[in-house]
Design a protein around this nucleic acid. Structure first.
Lengths: 111, 111
DNA sequence: TTGACATAACACCATTTGGTTATATATAAT
DNA sequence: ATTATATATAACCAAATGGTGTTATGTCAA
């Protein structure tokens, strides 16, 4: 029962521009490693490493089809990010509200 | 006119757990470097590095007050992340919809 | 002015990261 | 069976990252 230490989480996975590009490409259509790699200037091996990191974070999944391995976006794993963001959006909106208040009451402050 | 190459963007800034913790602490209240650092096991110097990265990404800002430097959350900078996420949520919901469709039409498939 | 305190600036280090090339394995097609 | 294609795996490397400790610098208080 290997404890399966997940080395990469969603936050780390999306930190790299190449990995975000992979997600974007897969959002357009499911595709093989070769097809994905064709959109990058870096080596196929390098792209595969990014793919593995994304898969480890649960953001994509791949299944072998003949000699190809077709990858698919798994966007549900972004929920963790969404929840994290939602917490901070609360403060974001509060701040905007406060700003709005200050502006609307500007003349009152010029006593 | 130094081109001010921004080394850290929002995606990278939030990738590190310590930095997310700094954001969380600042969401609670504005505070000095010393106070922030008191919540970590790592050295003050290390915390300062994280703070600088967050500031560079525009997620926080600090102003000198006497001998202290008080930092404040700048949540508007999370908009970039929010927009990025919104794009993928579209696929997320589509997928859930598709799944719902399959379930609801399950008996039809058992021909 | 001396001491205490908060932050800033350095120099240094181990590990991780993002990349490379080379080699092996599995599947398809001739 | 042979060859071409797609992916997998391994060994390697430079640079970035996250951490350390030490040494300035600025500010408040006695």
């Amino acid at each position: 029962m290997n404890a399966e230490q997940q080395k990469y989480d969603v936050f780390q996975a999306i930190a790299d521009p190449s990995r975000r590009k992979v997600l974007q490409l897969l959002s357009n259509k499911n595709q093989s490693i070769a097809e994905l790699a064709s959109h990058f200037d870096i080596s196929r091996t390098a792209v595969v490493k990014h793919i593995n990191i994304l898969a480890e974070a649960g953001l994509i999944s791949g299944k072998k089809q003949g000699k190809e391995k077709i990858y698919e976006l798994q966007p549900e794993s972004l929920k963790e990010l969404k929840d994290w963001l939602a917490y901070f959006e609360q403060f974001w909106h509060n701040k905007l509200t406060k700003f709005k208040y200050v502006v609307e009451n500007d003349t009152l402050n010029n006593k």
